[in-house]
Nucleic acid binder design. Structure first.
Lengths: 117, 117
DNA sequence: CCATATTGCTACCGTTTATGTAGCAAATAT
DNA sequence: ATATTTGCTACATAAACGGTAGCAATATGG
């Protein structure tokens, strides 16, 4: 069914219900969506800065994700580059605890070598 | 590079750093991972129950996700079916606020039709 | 005991998505 | 005017996903 933007109320990739949480999970469950939000949490970034912070993700995918995130009102593109909207910042606030949790998870499951950040 | 399990400390899909947060985002950024955790938050479920709650996701994908989640110590498979581990429940606790936030997001961005849950 | 059903799962194959490189038009800087 | 930088598109290849069919193992019922 080749879904582009996972609007709530509309069926999304794999999901026929269109519940908001499923639409959100569909959006967040695409490659680099979470990473993009994470990287934009501090500063606005240019396309290429964002690309390099996302480990050199291909511009094709980066541009797709940015379009989706703009259409879902989580990211916009002002004079200083791409940045989170107010809603995007709200979402990042929910996401922020994942940072320290992931370190704890890493230590518990995989040992000490998990490393920084 | 065909990455199977996104262990922190090891390069993951697209990411060369292996930072825990990137490993976690890689894991969560695969189709149905978030949905599976969401569905297992209340009860243990059999493979087929879980499949039907995930809108009939194909068994191929479901089995892949379950293997990954088991290997990452977020899900296990006891006598009553698949269920979240203690770590999995911790992660769900971080994820739970996304439910109500997604409803608010849906109303703000797409209008009122977003619907329940 | 034998048939039936359920469970967890694998094989296959076609479609979709992602990756990776090259490069172009517009804006900015020198 | 020349050279960079920026945002982005066009391919081609590789990986992931979706969907159906079906199998071995364990229950369940007659």
């Amino acid at each position: 069914m080749a879904v582009s933007i996972p609007r709530p109320g509309t069926p999304v990739r794999g999901s026929k219900t269109g519940k908001p949480i499923m639409a959100l999970f569909d959006l967040l469950g695409r490659s680099w969506t979470l990473g993009i939000i994470w990287q934009l949490s501090e500063d606005a970034l240019t396309f290429r800065d964002l690309q390099s912070r996302c480990e050199g993700v291909s511009p094709t995918v980066l541009n797709k994700r940015l379009k989706e995130l703009k259409e879902c009102a989580l990211v916009d593109h002002g004079g200083e580059g791409y940045r989170l909207t107010a809603l995007g910042q709200e979402l990042f606030a929910l996401l922020a605890p994942f940072g320290s949790w992931s370190q704890n998870w890493s230590r518990n499951v995989f040992g000490e070598q998990g490393g920084e950040e």
